[in-house]
């Protein structure tokens, strides 16, 4: 079955690759072509997943190769939908790049298609949980980048209100996905461990990250201080996210965590 993957994967990889390049141009006709290519890539991959599902007679969710197909599919879909809604071309380009990376890994390393996931990861929640976090971290990382650009503008004496405005909207979107990640994790934990919240160090840090962004969203509603203050907050909030992401591997409290991915 994975033999015909090459054909479908090639269609997706080529069309997404061209679409990414076309995103750099602003002409309406070019935009329409790139839209069509993104959709073509999504349709081609969906076709393959449906065929694989029918062939295996079970949802293709059990091996690393299979989960990567879903990553590519959902990330490109989310990228496209949010692009249509918010017109963030950079985000679509990023989403397509991530989707491409997962496709290319599957394409180039066919021998790991059949590597089974460990029992605790074999769940319908695994893929959505990971995808919403990938999207969320991308948005929040992007907001941090805008925070740094804004701070540069502030210290150069340039008006940074517009950058701050975009960064704030992006935080809202990233926060939405962060919430989904946290809640999907809770629903999954109930299925896998018997409880939806166990104060596992990774969970605790994820909660802290979530909380810091809530604090920001409320602070910014009052809009009392100068942009500099908010830009610093945005930039520094991301460090909490980084601790939750991989910093916890080095924390003493996290040695018992089920989420620590090192040996």
């Amino acid at each position: 079955m994975w033999k015909i993957f090459e054909l479908y994967a090639l269609i997706s990889i080529v069309s997404w690759g061209i679409a990414m390049v076309l995103l750099a141009f602003r002409k309406p006709i070019v935009a329409r072509i790139s839209d069509a290519l993104v959709l073509l890539g999504i349709i081609s991959l969906s076709f393959f997943i449906v065929k694989l599902w029918m062939f295996l007679d079970r949802p293709p969710l059990r091996t690393l190769g299979e989960t990567r197909l879903w990553y590519s599919l959902f990330i490109s879909c989310i990228g496209y939908v949010l692009y249509k809604r918010w017109n963030y071309r950079l985000f679509l380009a990023y989403a397509l790049l991530m989707a491409l990376v997962f496709m290319i890994i599957n394409y180039a390393k066919p021998d790991i298609h059949d590597k089974a996931l460990m029992p605790a990861l074999q769940s319908v929640w695994f893929v959505p949980h990971v995808i919403v976090y990938i999207v969320s971290y991308a948005f929040l990382g992007f907001s941090c980048l805008l925070g740094i650009i804004g701070l540069y503008q502030v210290y150069k004496g340039i008006d940074s209100k517009q950058v701050l405005g975009i960064a704030e909207n992006i935080i809202y979107i990233g926060f939405g996905f962060l919430t989904l990640g946290l809640l999907f994790g809770a629903l999954w934990a109930k299925e896998a461990w018997g409880h939806y919240w166990t104060w596992d160090p990774k969970e605790t840090w994820a909660l802290l990250t979530w909380g810091v962004y809530i604090v920001y969203m409320h602070l910014s509603l009052q809009n009392r201080k100068s942009p500099r203050y908010y830009l610093w907050f945005i930039t520094l909030s991301f460090t909490v996210l980084l601790i939750a992401w991989f910093g916890i591997n080095y924390l003493p409290a996290a040695q018992m965590s089920v989420h620590v991915y090192s040996n």
């Binding site: 909660l207 802290l208 810091v212 604090v215 924390l251 003493p252 409290a253």
Partner: peptide, 19 residues
């Protein structure tokens, strides 16, 4: 913000001290 920060500060203890 005060109430949320309080709750987060308590969570931070859990995040740093092995329970």
């Amino acid at each position: 913000i005060g109430a949320l920060t309080f709750f987060l500060a308590v969570s931070l203890i859990m995040a740093l001290v092995p329970q």
